[in-house]
Write a protein that binds this DNA or RNA. Structure first.
Lengths: 206, 206
DNA sequence: GAAAGCACTTGATGTAGATCAAGTGCGCTG
DNA sequence: CAGCGCACTTGATCTACATCAAGTGCTTTC
C-alpha cells in the first residue's frame, strides 16, 4: 500500500519534502536545488531499526521523507523517555552530539519503515560554504526548536496530565494518532495507564 | 558595598564580561572588541524592574554584566512559572519574540539591581554583517541553549522533585543560593513548601 | 528601635497520578 | 486460521507532592 497519510499517492522524487521545507523558509533557485540534493545521503530504515545509539557520536542529522522515528533516553532504572517524534518533513538528531562530537544522549529508532536523507557534518559545512543562504535555513530551524522546547518546559511545569494531552492533540493530532500510545505517554511524562484513562475520559465527554 | 560575588572588586569596563564571553567561543582582535562594544546599549536596571512585559514585542536581547534577572510566564490562574534565571555573563530574552516580532510570552524582571547590555535586532544584524565571526558566536549560544533545554525537558519527565533540586544544585549552586527560594521552587515546577521540605531533608543528611 | 510585610518553614489533609495486577484486544507469524 | 505476544484497558491501592493554614524569621520602612 503506497498511500501514506498526508502524502501524495506517488512519490516522484526522494528529495521532494526536503526541498519543500527549505523553499518554505528561504529562496532557492532550481540550480541550487540540484546542488542541495547532492549533499544528502538517501537511506531506507526498517521499523524498529536504530539509526543512533546513545553513547555513540551522532554523525549525521536526518530529514524524514517518509515514515516516523522517535528519539529517546533510557534512565538509570531502565525506563525509556521519549524526547521527540519526527515524521515526514521533519528533522531528527542528537544535535549536541552532532555539533560537538560528544557522546549522544539519545537513541533514535524507526517506528515505521521509513526513508530518510542523512546529512553529515562535513557535507553540511560544505553545503553552507557553497550555498550561504542555507545558513539562514538552519538558523531558523534552531530558533523554532528553541521556541518549541521552551513551550514544552512550560507545559511540563504548569499543566496537568490531561491538559498536556489535550494540548498535544491540538498541535499534532495526526502524529499522536499514528504513534504507539505507550510512546505518546512517555513523551507526555505519564504512564500508559494514565494516558488510557485520560483518553477514555475525553472520549466520554464528546 | 561594591564587592559582588564572583566579580572583581573593581569593574574596569562595562563590557568586560561580554568580551570575555565572546572570546571564549570565537577569536576576536582588539580592534574588533572596540567595534563590538559600539553595538550594545548599556543600561542600569533596578531590583523588581521589568525589562520585558509579556504581550509586548521583545526589542532587544540582554547580556548581564552585573546582577540577576528572571524570565517567567503567568498562567490562566495567575500562577507564575519561572523559565530562566540569568546572572553575570549570561544572556536573557524572549528569543522567539525577538526574532519573529511576535508578542512575547515572558516577563523579564530584575531580582537585583543590575547592569546590562542591550542589543537590538537591527544592531545585531549590522554587527554580524560587519563582523561575520559573530554569527558563529550566536550560533553556539543557540546550540548550547537547545542542549540545555532538552536536558531540562528530560529532567522534568524523569526525575523526582528532590532529584531535580539536587541536580540543579550540582550545576549552579551559586545562582540557586542567590535566588529567592520561591522562584527556585517555581523554576523546578514545585511548591515552595515542597522545596523547603526537600532542603530540610537534604541538610539533615549531611 | 518598633511595626509591618512578606518570605520561608512546619503541620495536617487531600489528590492526581504512579504502581501493581489482571483482563481484553489487536497484530503478527507459522 | 489458530496461537502467541504484546499493547492497551481496567480496577484496586499507594504515594509524592499539592493545598490549606499557621507559625517563625528576616527585611524594609518610618
Amino acid at each position: 500500500m503506497q498511500v501514506v497519510l498526508n502524502q501524495p499517492a506517488i512519490r516522484i522524487n526522494m528529495h521532494d519534502l526536503l526541498l519543500k521545507s527549505i523553499s518554505e523558509k528561504i529562496r532557492i533557485a532550481s540550480a541550487e536545488e540540484t546542488r542541495i540534493k547532492e549533499f544528502f545521503i538517501p537511506k531506507k530504515v526498517r521499523k524498529k531499526q536504530y539509526i543512533l545509539n546513545a553513547g555513540d557520536v551522532c554523525q549525521y542529522i536526518t530529514f524524514i521523507e517518509r515514515g516516523m522515528l522517535r528519539s529517546f533516553t533510557v534512565d538509570d532504572d531502565g525506563n525509556e523517555h521519549v524526547v521527540q517524534f519526527a515524521v515526514e518533513g521533519w528533522w531528527i538528531s542528537d544535535i549536541g552530539s552532532f555539533l560537538s562530537g560528544d557522546s549522544a544522549l539519545y537513541n533514535i529508532e524507526a517506528l515505521e519503515d521509513s526513508e530518510v536523507l542523512n546529512l553529515t557534518k562535513p557535507a553540511m559545512d560544505d553545503m553552507m560554504d557553497q550555498l550561504p543562504p542555507l545558513e539562514r535555513y538552519f538558523r531558523l530551524l534552531m530558533q523554532n526548536n528553541i521556541v518549541a522546547l521552551q513551550r514544552r518546559v512550560i507545559a511540563y511545569m504548569s499543566l496537568s496530565a490531561e491538559e498536556k494531552y489535550l494540548k498535544l492533540m491540538d498541535v499534532c493530532p495526526d502524529i499522536i494518532s499514528r504513534a504507539p500510545q505507550q510512546y505518546v505517554a512517555s513523551y507526555l511524562g505519564i504512564t500508559p495507564e494514565t494516558l488510557s484513562r485520560i483518553r477514555k475520559q475525553v472520549a466520554s465527554r464528546k
